[in-house]
Write a protein that binds this DNA or RNA. Structure first.
Length: 685
DNA sequence: GTATTAGTGTTTTTT
DNA sequence: ACACTAATAC
């Protein structure tokens, strides 16, 4: 195909509005892209068009996306059109862009090239250590919150003890050549402001800048973009304020609402035609979102045929809900991969998982416990991190006794103190002060072996996967797993390790591999796996599925009570909007009266009411026919919902029956699990 | 001093 | 499914 033909094809594959957006080349433009309106297509075509027309060279283009997965997809799609030249385009998340720029200029801020990125786990470990040596105990989660507040807004809490913990945290990060996620952005901004010549280099280079999911940019990300626009004012942003769902992470949707004020010459294009969902689904979404006040006027429409009406599922307990969903999936005759089950909080996946597993329906959970968060994967990665950067204390702490090698808490504590005293890392303390601590022969030998292991691995050349394999053999990790876990568990862990090793193939440097891992997000591993997909609504953003279940539609769960108390219902409503607009053909909205781990009765979510779905008078939206009682499995007279009496606990209600065990919610004692044989329950009603 | 085990708690959303 | 703790075993 000739160039001209390709360009013609690009343009003819777009609708009028999309084409209008694409053809705006110079100066700022905001594309308001409703859910499913083809924004990724506009973005990729626009970049391909710039290159094809010779308007910009690939290396003059920057595109910031929300996830690494989105970045890779975009790169692939551009590559399909323009070929290998696409590789020179900078397509990144804000964080990976920061990491790249910082690695290119590490010395200017006093870091070394191999700085590590601490994830949540490392942060927690570090904070616990700091508290331990200070003899204080605070909630780790709230400490992280304070650290973020301090980094973002310079706000220090009143409590002097918390202040000193934060100071020590920052001190440790600096000394150990480590950055957390916030640092990646803050340091990049610092680099630009302290070293204008560096900024100039990038600001001149990037003549065309694109930002996807603009509604979820934070003030600091916005500042980074502003800096980069120093010489060229060509900014192309795509977003939708109705899908801004990351305020807890610093996203501020007022940034998108202010776009025309910030860039006075801006053009604005609205994409309202939806290519994803049926009319019924879109109408529902429109009905709910129009209750938000902070938004532009926008109504999604479609040429699609009408489609099935959304269905409300109503059940007494989460177990019945799960059972009903299983029935719907099985009756449908669709492939399992057509289904996604979405929820507000990870905890809601539990009952579903059990039901799916019991019925032999394949499923995979996105997020929650992600692949890279599994113990065996984190163990091996921690070894690699330590080999790459001996200053990585958190990696060392994780694996010094995995597998157990005769080095325990007391010994480690001693080295921690030496490291503090000498201002070095723990690993260096072990190397340099062996005699001071380890008088016992056994401990000493164990420490020496450990150091030798790490040093030997450092010298390993060639493919990362080979090095990892050698490491695993040497530490006897397979034997360790087999000896501590039951066979099934062990099998799956070993498979995970194999998968991990496969993912290392083709990487010849630890640096590249570790970087690609540390910034990966939960969507990155989703792929096209078969099976029903379970995930939070947050992780479902940007995805689509033929059939979607949204569960947990109850007041205080969705909308979540913490958002209610923070006066942030509008964001919850946006979240609801994101959830329902994931559905292509069928949508089920589910609530129940009671959930495990919740003792109180639950009320249906206000969003159901706003959607016009709770009006039982109206025949079209009666509660679905999919209400089943779970079958009794054992030899007993009890059913879910029965009122029973127990000698000691008094009157209660049967919540679930699982073989010989029942869960009973007692009026006085709360939820108890009882073994039927011994409990001697009497039916009351 | 170190390893292992049983018992407990966990539950907003995440780059 | 995991992390953490306290108690016990080695």
């Amino acid at each position: 195909m000739s160039k001209q033909e390709k360009i013609f094809e690009i343009l003819s594959n777009l609708n009028e509005k999309q084409r209008e957006a694409l053809l705006h080349i110079d100066g700022p433009i905001l594309v308001i892209a409703g859910a499913g309106s083809g924004k990724t297509r506009v973005l990729t075509y626009r970049i391909a068009y710039l290159i094809h027309q010779g308007i910009a060279k690939p290396e003059e283009i920057l595109a910031v996306t929300f996830t690494n997965k989105a970045a890779n997809e975009m790169k692939q799609r551009i590559r399909d059109i323009v070929g290998r030249r696409a590789n020179a385009i900078w397509i990144h998340t804000f964080h990976s862009m920061g990491a790249r720029i910082l690695r290119e200029n590490y010395e200017l801020l006093g870091y070394s090239r191999n700085f590590v990125i601490y994830d949540r786990d490392d942060q927690k470990r570090l904070l616990k250590n700091i508290m331990k040596s200070a003899g204080w105990k605070f909630d780790v989660g709230s400490l992280i919150y304070h650290i973020e507040q301090f980094k973002k807004y310079g706000v220090m809490p009143q409590d002097g003890r918390i202040q000193s913990i934060i100071e020590e945290y920052i001190e440790h990060m600096r000394k150990n050549n480590a950055m957390d996620f916030d640092d990646l952005l803050a340091n990049t901004l610092k680099l630009f402001d302290k070293h204008p010549e560096v900024l100039d280099r990038y600001a001149r280079k990037f003549r065309y800048i694109h930002v996807d999911e603009y509604q979820d940019t934070s003030p600091i990300q916005y500042k980074l973009i502003r800096r980069l626009l120093k010489y060229h004012n060509n900014i192309f942003v795509v977003g939708d304020e109705d899908q801004s769902i990351y305020s807890f992470r610093g996203a501020d949707f007022r940034i998108i609402l202010n776009f025309e004020k910030d860039f006075p010459s801006a053009k604005v294009v609205k994409l309202e035609q939806n290519y994803r969902s049926t009319k019924e689904i879109l109408d529902l979404a429109n009905r709910v979102i129009k209750n938000n006040r902070s938004r532009r006027h926008k109504v999604l429409w479609t040429n699609n045929t009408k489609g099935k009406k959304p269905v409300v599922l109503s059940h007494y307990s989460d177990r019945e809900e799960a059972a009903a969903i299983v029935r719907i999936i099985e009756k449908s005759g669709r492939p399992y991969s057509d289904f996604a089950i979405l929820y507000r909080v990870n905890a809601l996946s539990r009952a579903l998982e059990e039901a799916l597993m019991r019925n032999g329906i394949p499923y995979n959970i996105v997020g929650g416990f992600r692949f890279y968060e599994r113990k065996e994967v984190k163990d091996i990665l921690a070894y690699l991190r330590l080999i790459y950067n001996p200053k990585d204390d958190m990696a060392l702490e994780r694996i010094i006794s995995v597998p157990p090698r005769g080095i325990g808490g007391k010994t480690i504590q001693a080295f921690r103190e030496i490291a503090r005293r000498e201002g070095t890392s723990i690993y260096e303390a072990i190397k340099g002060y062996l005699d001071e601590v380890a008088r016992g022969k056994k401990t000493r030998q164990a420490l020496e072996d450990f150091v030798n292991l790490i040093e030997d691995m450092k010298g390993h050349e060639g493919d990362v996967s080979e090095m990892a394999q050698e490491l695993i053999d040497r530490i006897g990790y397979v034997e360790y797993i087999q000896s501590t876990e039951d066979p099934n568990q062990a099998q799956s862990r070993l498979e995970n390790i194999q998968e991990l090793i496969n993912s290392m193939k083709g990487y010849s440097s630890l640096e590249d591999y570790l970087e690609s891992i540390s910034l990966s997000s939960d969507q990155d591993e989703l792929d096209s796996r078969s099976g029903v997909k379970l995930m939070t609504i947050h992780s479902a953003k940007g995805l689509e599925f033929p059939v979607v279940f949204v569960i947990g539609l109850e007041e205080n769960i969705f909308p979540h009570f913490l958002s209610l108390s923070e006066n942030n219902v509008e964001e919850e409503r946006r979240l609801f909007y994101v959830a329902v607009t994931r559905a292509q053909e069928e949508l089920y909205l589910s609530y129940c009266d009671r959930r495990t781990f919740r003792s109180e009765m639950l009320q249906p979510s206000r969003f159901l009411e706003e959607a016009g779905l709770l009006d039982e008078e109206e025949e079209s939206y009666t509660i679905s026919e999919y209400t089943y009682e779970e079958e009794d499995t054992g030899d007993h007279p009890f059913r879910i919902g029965d009122i029973v009496e127990h000698k000691k606990f008094g009157i209660g209600r049967v919540m679930s029956i699982d073989g010989e065990r029942v869960k009973v919610l007692f009026q006085r004692e709360g939820l108890k699990t009882l073994v039927l044989k011994y409990a001697n329950l009497k039916k009351v009603s």
